[in-house]
Amino acid sequence: MNKQRDKIGALFSLELSAGQIAFGRKVNKEESVFFDFVTDTLSPESIAKAYESRVAFRIPVMKYAVTSGRWKIVDCSRPVGPELAQPGKYFMQDKLTGAFSIYQQGEISPCDRIDVEGLECAAVWEPEHVEDRLRDYFARKPNLWFEQLKPV
């Protein structure tokens, strides 16, 4: 396997629809961030702009999205800063009891409903669902996959 494809800090491009290109970055062993930036041209300027863009969302993604070449590595030259490298928190909800927990890098802690407000569900996303979510994000419409994972 190409070590660059699994490298923390790798910036990758995702082709969306209508020639749109979005960007993500592997920020630690488990997670990638996706940027609030879309372009129609992959260039040194668009790569620089991706790095400077705010994070739209942060989630774990199936490793094969990058290792298979579906998403293309476009740069590995910048280290991940401490604010991005810090593992995110995710919520878990027991389907039978409704009880909530918070997951962070292998640690699970019970919590109350209020503690999970604003957290993503602990799930590993398929690349096509991430692409759908990004298309919806840029179109400013709700995403089916994200909505299905909200706490109840």
Rank of each mutant, 00 (worst) to 15 (best):
S77M: 04
P79K: 00
V80K: 02
G81P: 05
E83I: 03
L84K: 00
Q86S: 15
Q86G: 08
Q86R: 07
P87R: 07
G88P: 02
K89M: 13
Y90P: 04
Q93M: 15
D94G: 03
D94K: 05
D94A: 09
K95A: 15
K95Y: 10
L96W: 01
L96M: 11
L96P: 03
T97P: 12
G98E: 04
G98D: 06
G98Y: 04
F100L: 10
S101W: 08
I102V: 14
Y103D: 07
Y103Q: 11
Y103L: 11
Q104M: 13
Q105H: 11
Q105L: 11
Q105D: 14
E107P: 04
I108W: 04
I108R: 13
I108A: 15
P110A: 04
I114C: 15
D115R: 01
D115C: 09
V116H: 08
V116G: 02
E117Y: 11
E117T: 15
G118D: 15
G118N: 15
L119G: 05
L119H: 05
E120V: 00
E120R: 07
A122M: 11
A123S: 03
A123W: 09
W125D: 00
W125S: 05
E126Q: 09
E126M: 03
E126I: 03
E128C: 01
E128H: 05
H129E: 06
H129F: 09
L134G: 04
L134H: 01
